[in-house]
Nucleic acid binder design. Structure first.
Lengths: 79, 79
DNA sequence: TTTATATTCTCTGTTTAAAGGGAAATCAAC
DNA sequence: GTTGATTTCCCTTTAAACAGAGAATATAAA
């Protein structure tokens, strides 16, 4: 799953014609972090990951197996 | 966006009938981390976030605006 | 009310992510 | 081959994430 993330980042970076260093600078993170992201490091900080993904125009979202219809009605209640 | 994440975690935790402490123990993280997640802390570690989301049966995925058809043909090439 | 439970929010020590530098290794084009 | 660019991987330092404990503040039920 994070192997997938690593490949995704490298894929989109290359597709954007950026080097690791360029991506790092655009994202405002260190060059080593981009290298580590592309090599499957799990324990990166979420905010740094998001900064990198934003440069690549990739956004992450959260999937629940619950039906939308159920979530909606559940949310309309208090909770 | 991370405000959204915070609410999402709290929502699914409550829906699961878990306390912050119980969720933390099931996920193998500290109780403070769950509290911080539910209060929008951005700089959490990705692996810890994933552990919490797994307990709640929420998975995260990555969305690219590129058409799947384009991605497929692009992947079939080298890159 | 009282009691129990949950959450909020502090503090402290340990661990480690991250940055920056640098050098070897890999890759590319010429 | 040579050259230049990129990536890999090392090191050191600094900042901060994290865990765990505890206390104060809700929250809710009896």
């Amino acid at each position: 799953m994070t192997r997938h993330l690593a490949e995704l980042i490298r894929f989109h970076r290359k597709r954007s014609g950026l080097t690791q260093l360029e991506l790092a600078e655009m994202a405002g993170v260190g060059k080593n972090l981009v290298y580590e992201l592309e090599n499957g490091k799990q324990s990166v900080r979420l905010d740094n990951l998001i900064k990198v993904l934003q440069v690549l125009n990739v956004d992450l979202d959260f999937q629940s197996p619950l039906r939308d219809s159920f979530l909606k009605e559940y949310t309309d209640a208090d909770c």
